[in-house]
Design a protein around this nucleic acid. Structure first.
Lengths: 247, 247
DNA sequence: CGCGATTTTGAGAGCCGTCAAGATACGTGG
DNA sequence: CCACGTATCTTGACGGCTCTCAAAATCGCG
């Protein structure tokens, strides 16, 4: 009988069984297995990667939520994006030398650790996985493009509608959300720092939208009451569900 | 608006001789050569890629400036980033299926055409070039992160300082700018759509900065009078010059 | 029950958008 | 070479969106 390890083999990884991820060959799984150098458990608020440092690792989120952010010297903080299970974080630091943003755990989180040095081996031996990495980078870019459009051009109510609906759909896709509701681990301060608004203005806009019965957000529970209305307000276009890669 | 195509060997490509790009092996050059399926000449204002379409190609900018943008249904436009010689555009459409942004020529431009189908061959046969593609995607992500911080958190004067200095440095890096000045092909409307400001407010802020003698922008010529002052205002950190890849 | 974190609400100030009009630059045809 | 039209830039006035400051209410947790 095998000794019980703290880490699951990739083939048994509960994440991979979810419908939203593409299946992998035994070869691929074997390599990823060897590529993986452990798991990281991060408590709420723990800093996973720090801007300006050069990390030896990058990660796949296995469990929980994290977020990427940048700050200015006087403390202003911009949240760039959120990481949910299946998302890759820290690739940028692995490809270039220095991290240009920080990553923090929004909930307690479990991450799969990859060594940066091993990335080159992946590229030389597994074209399919290399392509996956590029796919993931390209998806991140798309999310950033959308966020830039949101912050640059959408008005307050549209911004909130867009960001909440986007997070809801992303959570749904990885089976973290039900048909109408999701447990959102954000505070209004997080949302404000995502939108580029002050906390006060975020709160007032949120209340106005709730009064319009588009959604209800109490405690950690976000309930989407009128998905179509939200989508119309935000000019949110649903993207076709497809099975995506994961490292 | 009608595209013409020509052909030029990659080994002789004048872009590659510039110091800012990494050297390539004969093998790599040979493959890129076969990978290249022609050149596209785009006139000022020509649309190179369209959001929602699925393009069969992606491109490297050889000459001129282009920009990526997204729009809302009522015409609001967010410029996401600019493409200068050496930059890759349209990779996202090649990796996923549909383009999620549009690309337009800011000046008349010449682009190297790559067939999307050939991307897979590149990944299976040239790990080094695959890694380059990922490097380029990661660099684009970094620029978007910065822009998100700029639009979300920086104030009007800081935003303009940051964007102008960033464009100036990028142009310098590819030898499009001199020690103190560059020919910027943007209108104030482009800048406004980049910053998320109205044209009027952009103009007034621009005048205020010129009055502080940080730069002068007359006609198409931008002259940086006080780089250190600009950098401090914008909290712009120079990144070390390094030789970067190009496809 | 008490404390810190988070949320909520009000008031006043200021940044930024819209509207409008004029000025300047540039290309084209007469 | 000038006239004219279009694109771009500039400036002023005014309204509104968003910020800051402040304080109270609520929640989460030991």
């Amino acid at each position: 009988m095998k000794p019980r390890t703290t880490r699951l083999s990739c083939a048994q990884c509960r994440l991979r069984t979810r419908e939203c991820f593409r299946p992998f060959s035994a070869d691929e799984l074997g390599f990823i297995e060897s590529f993986k150098s452990g798991e990281l458990i991060a408590d709420v608020g723990a800093t996973i990667l720090t801007e300006g440092s050069n990390s030896a690792h990058f990660y796949t989120v296995l469990d929980g939520w994290v977020f990427r952010y940048k700050t200015l010297t006087d403390g202003r903080r911009q949240i760039l994006n959120y990481g949910l299970p299946g998302d890759l974080v820290g690739l940028q630091g692995a490809v270039s030398d220095v991290m240009h943003h920080s990553v923090e755990a929004l909930t307690s989180a479990r991450l799969c650790i990859f060594s940066r040095d091993a990335l080159w081996t992946l590229y030389s031996r597994f074209p399919s996985l290399s392509f996956d990495v590029t796919w993931l980078a390209s998806r991140e870019e798309r999310l950033l493009d959308e966020q830039l459009l949101t912050i640059g051009q959408r008005k307050a109510e549209e911004r909130i509608a867009f960001v909440l609906l986007r997070l809801f759909r992303r959570a749904q896709h990885v089976e973290l959300a039900g048909e109408r509701s999701v447990e959102l681990p954000l505070t209004q301060q997080h949302l404000a720092d995502t939108l580029g608004f002050s906390l006060v203005h975020t709160n007032k806009t949120l209340k106005r939208l709730e009064a319009r019965r588009l959604f209800r957000w109490r405690g950690r529970q976000l309930t989407v009451l009128d998905p179509a209305g939200l989508a119309e307000l935000a000019q949110y276009s649903e993207d076709p569900a497809m099975r995506r890669p994961i490292l």
